[in-house]
Simulated assay, not measured.
Amino acid sequence: MYDPRQLQVLAEVARTGTQTAAAEALGYTQPAISYQMRMLERAVGSRLVTRRGRGIHLTPAGKALARHADIVLAALRSAENELAALTAPGGGRVRLAAMQSGCVALVPRALGTLRRTHPELEVTVTQAECQVSHGLLLNDEIELAVMCDVDTVDPTAEPDTGGESLTIDPRLSSMPLLTDRRCVLMPADHPAAAQPFVSLADLAEERWVLESGRARFLAACRDAGFTPRIAATADDQLTLHHLVAHRIGLAVLNALAVTAHTDPRVVARPLTGFPVRRVFALLWPDSRNVPATAALLHALGEAALPTADGTPGIVPAATRQT
């Protein structure tokens, strides 16, 4: 019988390609990784990895065992999650991480639904950038993450979300929730507020209050033929609303963030010619079989649909895949 901890080390070595990266991902020291690999090779009776330059290469036996390790670890994770849901007081607990705009709009709607349909279910919420949520999910510190696709203008540009570009681990499963477009926040009596949509070219003379992650916006301004005058920088969305209300400048926010605040001094108008972002839920595939996680996933899907009054700026995803 192989030690699950050693199987986890092998799976991480296979995923990252080096023992150093595996140690960092698992929170181990590199000598501890080397020791676990030696013990696993002793139990198997065969070499599992060979060195190749600065990295390592899995032997045929290592590749075969790594495939089985993923299956074994997924089954253990599923059992742990299901038993936790069955034995937790009050009917179960789900740990959720979500980006800021999801926390102020989408997640509260979902939790409101759960309060009615599953009042015994406890959900803990962590606000985190997409990269952090992805890491929490891989480390089994959460069961579910609400994220968006993270894109950059060019390989050297800082992403518009303020973080680094992210490659989703292929072992994880995603469920599309909605597409979210960029809006310009402006005083209610601004001349452009009379228009249903606005373009950057029409706002070239304005002052702006921006989030620190602004690469895509700056690139779009360059394409429109101007460099924006930046009056203030803030990453808190409520702060941006208040800065606009007090006429410090205009702001650009995703529609999810816009819908969470209703200051009558401020209006939002969709920005033309700007790419939408796609918001999705991310989880381990086996977690879909855990009733508590499945209930939260369903509530998030329901919350992503337009409200009865047709919440502006939010368009439901065209397809939902399992």
Rank of each mutant, 00 (worst) to 15 (best):
R67A: 12
I142E: 06
L238A: 10
P119I: 06
V290K: 02
G17L: 08
L297M: 14
L10V: 12
M175E: 12
D286I: 14
D286Q: 15
L48Y: 03
A234W: 10
A193R: 09
P31L: 01
T239M: 12
A64E: 15
M37N: 08
P4L: 06
R42H: 13
L40S: 09
R77L: 11
S34M: 04
D169H: 08
P228L: 09
C221L: 03
G53Y: 02
L136E: 02
A64W: 08
S34E: 01
A110G: 00
L185G: 05
R54M: 08
L210M: 04
M37E: 03
A188V: 10
A14L: 07
F197A: 05
A294N: 11
A317V: 11
A88V: 04
T87E: 12
D160K: 05
A193E: 02
H57M: 08
A23W: 00
L238W: 15
Y2C: 14
E205P: 00
R42P: 14
R277M: 04
L76R: 13
H118K: 12
T126Q: 13
P312C: 02
R216Q: 14
V267G: 07
A204G: 07
W208P: 06
F217I: 11
L96K: 04
V132G: 11
V13W: 02
F274I: 08
E122M: 14
R181W: 09
E80K: 10
M37P: 06
D223N: 14
H190C: 00
L283M: 13
V49S: 07
R207D: 12
H298Q: 07
L121F: 09
L106S: 05
L238K: 14
G102H: 08
A61N: 11
Q131H: 14
G90M: 10
E41K: 01
L111H: 04
Y35I: 15
A23G: 09
V13R: 06
R67T: 15
H261I: 15
L106W: 00
Q237V: 13
L243A: 01
A69M: 01
P108E: 04
T262K: 03
A292S: 12
A219Y: 01
D149S: 13
A97R: 07
A318P: 09
P119H: 03
L253F: 02
R77V: 13
C183R: 07
A98L: 01
D309P: 06
A61V: 10
L48G: 08
A25N: 01
R109F: 01
A188T: 03
A145L: 07
V125H: 03
G17S: 07
A75M: 00
E164G: 07
